[in-house]
């Protein structure tokens, strides 16, 4: 089953050790972006090479691996990454959140609460929360070391004065343990409250940008806001059309060419499990 031409989980042991060191440093300084010598992977940059390298470095043969993209196990890139590790590591895979010991994700945090026995690996496109305010890496690193986050607050304030709201709906910046401002990867801000005080280890890998950062279990993570404009997690104001869930994040699906649409859970495992338990939404067959 495993491809014998490559080392377990594709990367050679020295590379994995280098990545593990970066992960450990990241865990020791929560929210700090650790530069690491990202390797060229056999999938394109921007398609999860950071997450794949982090997963490769933490996977053991006994692990059970789950990959989601947009919350779903069956999106094409999730399928592709899962089959990459089936081939190069031969690990057991699952779509069931609670059965997985390592979950690689793009753009979502599973609905089901994770446990201390699990690791959540995020794919990160742009790790720098200040990037779109200051394009220069040399400048943003300085801003982090001086804890100079005024620019970010000004940006959020300008949003409020112009729109009445903070106009960031995903990749919403957070502050970790009162120190580093961190990009949580492009998860919807609906997921932000799950970042803090999570039982599982959270690891973030940005391959192209050569950065790893981490949140150890039970870390304090606060979404940036103002006292008079508190952070608000938002989602489509509907129940899931298939399982009737009121509290899950929803995708909008266009069902006909007259503009008809339905809302379904983005977390496919969560939705399937609810349906199996007998819950039914208004659009369920």
């Amino acid at each position: 089953m495993t491809d014998q031409d490559y080392n377990f989980a594709y990367l050679d042991e020295q590379t994995k050790r280098m990545i593990r060191r970066a992960i450990l440093k990241g865990l020791a300084i929560p929210g700090y972006q650790v530069p690491f010598a990202s390797r060229e992977m056999p999938m394109p940059y921007g398609w999860g090479t950071g997450g794949v390298q982090v997963s490769a470095a933490v996977l053991t043969p006994e692990d059970t691996f789950k990959v989601i993209d947009q919350g779903a196990d069956d999106t094409t890139n999730a399928v592709s990454i899962r089959s990459f590790f089936q081939r190069t590591a031969g690990v057991t895979t699952t779509t069931k959140t609670s059965d997985a010991s390592v979950i690689q994700t793009r753009h979502r945090i599973p609905e089901e609460a994770l446990t201390e026995d699990q690791i959540l690996v995020y794919q990160v496109p742009i790790p720098e929360p200040l990037r779109f305010l200051e394009p220069r890496e040399s400048e943003t690193r300085k801003m982090h070391s001086l804890e100079e986050y005024g620019l970010m607050h000004v940006k959020l304030y300008e949003d409020i004065s112009r729109h009445g709201h903070i106009a960031t709906s995903y990749a919403y910046p957070v502050k970790v343990e009162g120190r580093y401002v961190m990009d949580p990867s492009p998860i919807p801000k609906f997921d932000n409250p799950k970042l803090g005080d999570m039982a599982a280890i959270q690891l973030f890998g940005a391959g192209r940008e050569q950065r790893i950062y981490a949140l150890p279990p039970y870390t304090q993570v606060v979404s940036l806001d103002f006292e008079d404009h508190p952070f608000e997690a938002s989602k489509a104001d509907h129940p899931c059309g298939l399982c009737g869930a009121e509290e899950s994040y929803l995708d909008e699906v266009i069902v006909d060419d007259a503009g008809g649409r339905m809302f379904v859970c983005s977390d496919t495992d969560y939705c399937d499990a609810r349906q199996a338990a007998g819950y039914k939404g208004k659009d369920a067959a």
Binding site: W47, G71, H107, P188, D251
Partner: peptide, 20 residues
Amino acid sequence: GFLEHIKLPHYVDFQSELEL
């Protein structure tokens, strides 16, 4: 790689932008 990654699904981000 980064340019072409925008072909990948972005339903979730797009949904949150839609709501906003």
